[in-house]
């Protein structure tokens, strides 16, 4: 009896996404090693920097739950950053820029979705190729030189605070709540879960599999566009390198958050804490003076350990 109880408790623990443990461990480490960093203002600034990643993750978790992946976010961010900062469209208002960005994200998301769901092309290849095409296109247009400045209104909006919390962070939390409600309250959430659990069974149960995958990719494109707007506002200048490592990091944060590749499991808050863990990790590495190679190694090991933790769970369900 005691053994089964312990087993059940162990199983419950193993069901908790690794992100929560990683987050707790990093928070304690930071509090012990650098107590003066545990300050709402300083943490707020660091968390504000991670918001583009957090928003990108909202799309990533959706497509990863339907057994797909989206690596085109880097290209989308670069393209949107380019046409906001290049001065190609002088005198355009902020609202129009936002509309253009969202249209771009929706179009690219639709393309990804149709290629993956209808043509059944490997999602890794399609989204990587789309990213390569967009990055090359932007570098061709800008001849590899950083374009101009971002209109000041973006930076102003980025620096505002509501009730002491930076607006970008609020936007991220609001979008996360929306996504959580969308997945738990709407039929679409059930479709996502069933497609991720078993594609064939979902098909024969009358779930519109292809449509679900396409919609997931469209939403991922939309999230990438919003992430691009926040990222552009945060750096306030044009760049030809911005956001290129974000898609990979978003996959890592999503896995840390308990969404498993090729399985329909996972929630929204696990990946949310996965992103926060990355924010803490960056703070910790920066304050401890870890240099660039060390950061790469630690980042790789954390992704690996999270994946191993989850892989062991799959092995003995």
């Amino acid at each position: 009896m005691a053994v089964t109880l312990a087993d059940k408790a162990w199983q419950r623990i193993r069901r908790i996404p690794p992100a929560y443990f990683v987050f707790a461990i990093l928070l304690v480490t930071l509090a012990v090693l650098r107590p003066h960093m545990m300050n709402a203002n300083i943490l707020g600034i660091f968390i504000r920097q991670i918001v583009p990643l957090g928003i990108l993750v909202l799309g990533q978790l959706l497509v990863m739950r339907v057994r797909s992946i989206d690596l085109s976010g880097g290209g989308i961010i670069l393209l949107i950053n380019y046409y906001i900062s290049s001065g190609l469209f002088p005198g355009t208002s902020m609202a129009l820029f936002i509309a253009m960005a969202i249209a771009t994200g929706l179009i690219i998301g639709t393309f990804n979705g149709i290629m993956i769901a209808k043509r059944r092309v490997s999602a890794v290849i399609v989204t990587l190729a789309v990213s390569i095409v967009l990055v090359g296109f932007v570098q061709y247009l800008s001849s590899g030189k950083p374009p101009g400045d971002v209109p000041a209104i973006f930076a102003t909006a980025y620096n505002t605070k509501l009730a002491g919390v930076p607006t970008p962070v609020l936007l991220w939390i609001a979008l996360t709540i929306l996504m959580a409600l969308f997945l738990s309250r709407m039929v679409f959430g059930r479709f996502v879960a069933s497609v991720g659990e078993n594609l064939t069974a979902a098909h024969f149960s009358g779930v519109p599999v292809e449509r679900t995958v396409i919609v997931a990719h469209i939403l991922a494109g939309l999230m990438a566009a919003i992430a691009a707007l926040v990222q552009t506002a945060s750096i306030a200048v044009g760049s030809v390198r911005v956001g290129l490592d974000l898609p990979i990091l978003s996959v890592a944060a999503t896995i840390l958050g308990g969404v498993v590749f090729g399985r329909g499991e996972g929630g929204v808050w696990g990946p949310f804490f996965g992103v926060l863990s990355f924010a803490l990790l960056f703070i910790l590495m920066t304050t401890l003076g870890v240099d660039e190679p060390g950061k790469l190694i630690i980042q790789g090991l954390i992704i690996l350990l999270a994946a191993i933790f989850y892989g062991m769970r799959i092995a003995k369900p």
Binding site: A252, G311, A315
Partner: peptide, 15 residues
């Protein structure tokens, strides 16, 4: 350890 190839080799790439 049942890790997806993309994740395993991606983290190896970083390391």
């Amino acid at each position: 350890l049942n890790v997806h190839p993309i994740i395993a080799t991606l983290s190896m790439q970083y390391v």
